[in-house]
């Protein structure tokens, strides 16, 4: 039941996003409709340097598209690509 109402989501950060935000996860109350809108919000809030073009997003532990509609209680994870070894 997608709505424009505020919802609570649990956001997880990895790699450079974790460093830039200083958080491994946070709970956010947001009006963001889609995962993309949520990223725009947290990008602004934490000053993330990586754009959505380079990141992947998982909603409830499955990779999803940026257009995915968020629901109350969703867990959202932003994942940069890693190459170190």
């Amino acid at each position: 039941m997608p709505t424009n109402k505020t919802k609570k989501v649990h956001v997880f950060y990895y790699a450079v996003l974790r460093e830039q935000s200083g958080l491994t996860h946070e709970r956010i109350t947001t009006k963001a409709k889609t995962a993309g809108e949520l990223y725009a919000y947290v990008q602004d809030r934490h000053g993330f340097t990586l754009g959505p073009d380079i990141l992947k997003i998982a909603v409830n532990d499955s990779f999803k598209s940026w257009k995915t509609i968020l629901e109350n209680g969703d867990s959202v994870t932003f994942i940069p690509p890693l190459a170190g070894g």
Binding site: A15, L82, A83
Partner: peptide, 8 residues
């Protein structure tokens, strides 16, 4: 596998 700082 790939790593970054303390995660992978």
């Amino acid at each position: 596998a790939s790593i970054y700082h303390l995660e992978g």
